[in-house]
Amino acid sequence: MIDAENLTKKFGNLTAVEDLTFHVDEGEIFGFLGPNGAGKTTTVRMLCCLISKTSGTAKIADYEIGNDADSMKIRKIIGLVPDNVGLYDGLSAYDNLDFYGKLYDCTETQRKENIEKFLKMLGLWDKRDVSAGTFSKGMKQKLAIARALIHEPEILFLDEPTVNLDPESAKTVRDFILELKKEKKTIFLNTHNLDEAQRICDKIGILNTKLMAIGTPKELEGSIGGRKTVIQLDQVNDTILNALKKLSLGNITSDNNKLTIDLENPEKENWAIVNAIVGAGGHIQTVTVLGSTLEDAYLKLVRETK
């Protein structure tokens, strides 16, 4: 659905985005993570045909960005929630959506139905006749999301949609995004929120001008290693430690009858470890695998570039 190849954007001699190559499938939620100034907004703007690319190529559906005729077609099938919501404060929530519906050539019935559907889903239907200017940040954010969906786009670009939202509103928005996924929409989500990305994204790209890593949340967590198995025993003794040493595992520490073993692949190795302990007469209380988190992976990748 979205295909970027060596996509690059320079502002004068500042390179904002360099050699970006990635692919997002139809119906996928793609999370774009990166520190401030990483180039997330710049990438979204290029993909939405708002700013030109410097080099490389990108395709949205089958249309090429940077080609004037295709730009028009791309704009018809995408919806954008920019980092600044940009509503018309002087117009009511309903009129804000209706204006956009008209720009996208939606019929009157289509506009009515969709406005009602999305405002109800986002809990704003009762406020439809109130000026958007009086809305709270969270309500504005939700209204901007409804606006981006009014023409039922295939692809939705969201630039930090839950920033500034209280936990409950953030959850409404997240649940709503998951709801859209059920409708087979492709979602491109810029975010700083690692937890959010981990919870709702199928695939995550970590950007810091260059794309540092891309993969499923699980793959990214696994990619930096550093996993451990922690085993709590009634009693640790030398027989058990010697039995474990024969297995040629990573570093083993013992503390308060708790063994911590560094492992590459705990799922494969735990069986042998448990066997060895039981064979040596140990009584196991609990076995826990500690993985590196997405946060560990993110911090490691982002620090590497500095």
Binding site: C49, R75, P82, N84, V85, L103, Y104, A144, R147
Partner: peptide
């Protein structure tokens, strides 16, 4: 000023 230009320019309008 209202930042409404960006979403407007993202619609199919010249």
């Amino acid at each position: 000023v209202e930042k409404s230009l960006e979403p407007l320019l993202a619609t199919p309008i010249t």
